[in-house]
């Protein structure tokens, strides 16, 4: 485990050091960015709409019964932007994009394509890791902004449509605007940025250390997704503590 952590830190450092080369790799960054957005945008919208709706469904009736109907919008707003959108979307991206990164790099490793790059004096960190890291670090925060907005919309629709809550669109968003501030949204976007680095490094590292044949690739993909999710949840607690203080 400690060897893995050490290797990941080293990989992250080497990727950071290669950052000035990102412009040269812009076509690959754009391809990866398109891949992430194209593969995930619909899923992100669907997931965040219903997460926002479910939160409203849970807290709405309770708040309304206690005469706190005006606070529903703010609560959904805060829950969505500070916690649910960044964490849930990062978990979604770890499963959908992180796994694909590991599988692709892992199969390149198993079928000696990475060795072939090395013999051509092409650094796999520059060629494979850097574009993926840059793309995910830009795409995930953008997807989370999208998820926050769609989640709010989901909360508002459910609050308006559900008889037990019955809070109009206008009232929902008025309260949301009172409670949620730009730093709250920035808080969630910052978390998403940190999670994107975790997903990128864990997934690329697992791909690069893949051994064996197809079974090895499968094992690496599982490890990458599980490790990413565990680290996202751990880091979420640490970041929340730090950002609260």
């Amino acid at each position: 485990m400690f060897q893995n952590i050490g290797e990941m830190v080293l990989l992250f450092w080497r990727t950071l050091a290669a950052l000035p080369l990102a412009w040269r790799q812009r076509q690959k960054v754009f391809d990866q960015f398109y891949e992430i957005g194209n593969a995930s945008l619909l899923m992100v919208c669907l997931l965040s709409f219903f997460i926002g709706g479910v939160i409203a469904l849970h807290i709405g009736p309770v708040m309304v019964e206690r005469g706190l109907a005006s606070a529903v919008g703010g609560l959904v707003g805060i829950a969505m932007c500070k916690e649910l959108a960044p964490v849930m979307m990062s978990i979604l991206i770890a499963g959908r994009i992180g796994s694909a990164m590991t599988a692709e790099i892992g199969s390149m490793r198993v079928y000696q394509e990475i060795d072939a790059l090395r013999t051509m004096n092409i650094d796999p960190v520059h060629y494979l890791v850097l574009p993926r890291m840059v793309a995910i670090a830009v795409a995930l925060p953008l997807l989370v902004i999208f998820a926050i907005l769609v989640g709010w919309l989901g909360g508002a629709v459910v609050s308006a449509a559900n008889d037990r809550i019955d809070i109009g669109f206008r009232a929902f968003f008025m309260n949301l605007r009172d409670v949620v501030d730009i730093p709250d949204v920035a808080n969630g976007v910052f978390k998403a940025f940190c999670f994107s680095l975790v997903i990128g490094i864990v997934s690329c590292h697992q791909g690069l250390v893949t051994l064996g044949g197809p079974r090895g690739i499968g094992r690496s993909v599982t490890k990458a997704v599980v490790n990413s999710i565990v680290l996202i949840v751990l880091l979420d607690y640490i970041l929340t503590r730090l950002l609260l203080s």
Binding site: S107, M108, Y111, Q112, E113, D115, A116, L117
Partner: peptide, 8 residues
């Protein structure tokens, strides 16, 4: 390489 190791 024995397999060619072309980038697929």
């Amino acid at each position: 390489f024995q397999s060619g190791a072309l980038l697929s």
